[in-house]
């Protein structure tokens, strides 16, 4: 027997140091009492929070929690970067207009006949983003004023970038451009 083995056998004698036969029963009883006392001492809010955490931990694995967090952050970012004053077509569908309609006049045609005026509720840009008619915005591209805007062609020297847009008429008439 080598000396390491002797050391092992010697140290193994420590297993004979025991707390006594009654220890386990007394310990379990003390543990139960302590648990009950802790439950009573814990404020109700803390117990509720602990129950919620236990339920939450059981419900979601860490992987799903991460996935859910990514989705929520995605939504928040989506809203944060959405163009101000703009709403998606879907969001607007079926809702009553919450701003006054704008009346536009096309002026006169080549024969001098006055073209009929019309009202617009919404301007759809690039086929998707709907914006409210904004005189400030329109005045960059058209001459005229709010409620009686006269549409004239762009000045060719204008450096504004023209984006495709549609007028959505209150009376459902098609875009007359």
């Amino acid at each position: 027997m080598d000396e390491f083995e002797k050391i092992q056998k010697l140290i193994r004698l420590k297993k004979y140091e025991t707390p006594g036969e009654q220890f386990v029963d007394e310990f379990v009883t003390a543990f139960r009492e302590r648990q009950r006392a802790e439950m009573l001492k814990q404020p109700a809010l803390s117990l509720l929070w602990e129950s919620f955490r236990a339920w939450y931990d059981q419900l979601f694995s860490p992987r799903w929690t991460l996935a859910a967090a990514v989705v929520v952050i995605g939504f928040i970012c989506g809203f944060a970067f959405m163009p101000r004053g703009g709403q998606t077509h879907l969001a607007r569908r079926g809702k009553a207009p919450d701003h006054p309609a704008m009346t536009l006049s096309l002026g006169k045609d080549q024969t001098g006949k006055t073209l009929p005026a019309f009202s617009i509720e919404t301007i759809r840009v690039m086929g998707e983003i709907e914006i409210e008619p904004d005189p400030g915005l329109l005045s960059k591209h058209f001459t005229g004023g709010y409620d009686q805007i006269v549409i004239v062609p762009h000045d060719e020297a204008d450096t504004a970038i023209a984006v495709p847009y549609d007028f959505i008429h209150l009376d459902g008439k098609p875009d007359i451009r």
Partner: peptide, 15 residues
């Protein structure tokens, strides 16, 4: 603060 040693140690070959 040590526990009592079980009397079984007296029959342990190493002891």
């Amino acid at each position: 603060s040590l526990d009592d040693v079980d009397t079984g140690i007296q029959n342990d070959p190493t002891f």
